[in-house]
Amino acid sequence: MQSSTIRRWSTVHTWTSLICTVFLLMLAITGLPLIFHHELEHLLGEAPELREMPADTPRLDLEQVVLAAERHRPDEVVQYLGWEADEPNGVVAIMAATAGTEPNSSHTFMLDARTGEAVEMPAANGGIMMFFLRMHVDMFAGLPGKLLLAFMGVLFVVAIVSGVVLYAPFMRRLDFAEVRHDRSRRTRWLDLHNLIGIVTLTWALVVGVTGVITATADLLIAAWRNESLAAMVEPYRDAPPLQQRAQASDLLEIARRATPGMVPDFIAFPGTRFSSEHHYAVFMVGDSHVTSHLWTPVLIDAQTLEVTAVGTRPWYMDALSLSSPLHFGDYGGRPMQILWAVLDLLTIFVLISGLYLWWVRRRSVSTARAVTA
């Protein structure tokens, strides 16, 4: 590779790294506890705890669960009901002043599916884990914060690619993983920076790309609403406003009949951003590690309870659904969590060592200029 080409790639690597490093350090630090968020929520007392009851205790009808939610927060409406795999007797309810209230202004809690008893979820409404999540997702700045972090993610990917381009000719002079302990401190740091950077390369690319996709979730959901959802509800475009919704009792059975072999993940009530003004939307998923994150929406008329559409998934919604669990290492249980945490810590070292190398080089250049002046 010619020296002029190396200089250009070096400039790209230096500046893309410098611009995004502070943000990436914040993301790496806040992302570390999020890898173990389930465990930390229980440790910090922020996870809901349902009462112990006999295993054969019957569950409430789904409409009774809705009424229990409305009794718990009588001045609000139900936006979503959802289910978590690790709490089979719990129903997660999300409520707000109106169906269209934006997510950060909603309130999340859990209902016991057997009794209707409401159990608060501090981690979902302002606990320490929610602080880490909001910092990691949008820095408490909403969509502008998400788009800024998406841009930083793009710079991170460019920095990785340019670093690989520079690494290839550099390593022709050294054995793989060689650290020159007999050289200066800067040289030792450079060798460690390059070594750990290349070891974490694939993981960093995966986390960087999935982070960019996740950060653009609002835009992808808006595109889905404007394209797929709009097409599914087109027959209702001129329909009069919904006066009263039908009871939710049979929604799950109706959705199961429409999507054999699938299980419900969550229900979007009429007027929310995942449904329409005239529909319940029941989002069904598969039962494998991968398909459990892929949504198939079943639109059910909120007055007649007739299935009006079973949605297909556009590629970008599949990408979004798969990116978030992959980004946080949710696919492979505890071993994958530990691996993700180790790689996260190594990435923090790469970022800090990169800053150190830039600072030492900058100081050396300044000193040389002063000497020759």
Rank of each mutant, 00 (worst) to 15 (best):
L62N: 04
H72D: 10
T200V: 11
R172I: 01
Y331V: 01
D61A: 15
V137A: 12
T202A: 15
V157N: 06
L305E: 04
A223F: 09
E117Q: 13
M284S: 01
L305D: 02
V154Q: 02
V365D: 09
V91L: 00
R361N: 11
S184L: 07
G145L: 08
V199M: 10
V350D: 06
T115S: 14
R185E: 11
M232C: 04
T272F: 01
R245Q: 14
D250N: 14
P314N: 05
G163L: 06
L205Y: 02
G271A: 03
L62W: 02
F36T: 04
I19P: 10
D75P: 02
S276K: 11
V92E: 13
R73K: 13
V165M: 10
S162L: 08
W203F: 15
L149D: 00
D112K: 03
I352G: 05
E306A: 09
L174Y: 15
T202H: 03
T259R: 13
V298F: 02
R186V: 14
S106Y: 02
A255H: 00
V342C: 09
L18M: 10
L205E: 00
P54H: 08
R71A: 10
T347P: 02
T259Q: 15
R134E: 11
T308Y: 01
L229C: 03
T272Q: 01
E178H: 15
E39M: 02
T216I: 15
S292L: 06
L345C: 12
P122F: 09
W189C: 09
M135K: 03
R186C: 06
L27H: 04
R183T: 09
M152F: 14
H72M: 01
T216M: 15
G145V: 08
N125S: 08
T98Q: 12
T108K: 07
W359A: 12
M135Q: 08
Y80V: 01
F151A: 12
P264W: 05
T291R: 06
I198Y: 01
D86L: 10
L201Y: 08
S228V: 12
R273Q: 12
A370M: 12
G153Q: 04
A281W: 01
Y80P: 03
V158R: 02
V154K: 00
T367C: 06
W359K: 13
M152S: 06
V233Q: 09
I128M: 14
G271S: 05
A309C: 03
G153L: 07
A68N: 04
M53R: 14
V179C: 12
R73Q: 11
L320D: 07
E253H: 08
R273W: 09
I254N: 02
A246S: 12
V164F: 14
R73I: 11
D61L: 11
V78A: 02
R73N: 04
P235R: 00
H37C: 07
F23E: 02
V164C: 11
L220Y: 11
V92H: 10
T5P: 04
P314K: 11
M139I: 13
H289D: 14
R180P: 07
T115A: 05
Q2P: 14
L201P: 03
Q79I: 00
A215G: 13
A222P: 07
W15V: 07
S4G: 09
V154P: 02
L40W: 09
V154D: 04
M284C: 06
Q303V: 11
W189V: 13
V360T: 13
V209R: 03
